[in-house]
């Protein structure tokens, strides 16, 4: 499996570690009202789509950047990868 790193080109998946759904980037505000309910959702609930999925990969054995990789979970096709810190809301 290859991941098209936006800075480094196609890299082997073994250089990366996987975290999960890119919605983990949408961390709720811990000081807001109703934070506990928001955090319960954030921590425990994820969509698990059969198809296109945005997910977080860490280039651990590389440049240490976190990537948002768009991957089709049915075909394993990787549709794109972007730097998470420039990726905004997922």
């Amino acid at each position: 499996m290859l991941i098209p790193h936006p800075l480094l080109g196609p890299r082997d998946a073994s250089e990366f570690t996987y975290l999960g759904d890119a919605s983990l980037m949408n961390r709720p505000d811990g000081m807001a009202d109703g934070a506990e309910a928001a955090f319960c959702e954030y921590v425990f609930l994820r969509d698990n789509p059969a198809g296109v999925h945005r997910e977080l990969w860490f280039h651990e054995h590389g440049d240490r950047s976190w990537l948002i990789v768009t991957r089709n979970t049915l075909t394993h096709e990787v549709l794109g990868a972007e730097l998470a810190h420039k990726g905004g809301q997922a």
Partner: peptide, 17 residues
């Protein structure tokens, strides 16, 4: 050591860029 560093990078890049 490695996991904490990875997590801190996650916080820096993904949560509070």
């Amino acid at each position: 050591a490695g996991l904490v560093f990875q997590r801190m990078e996650f916080a820096r890049q993904c949560l509070w860029p």
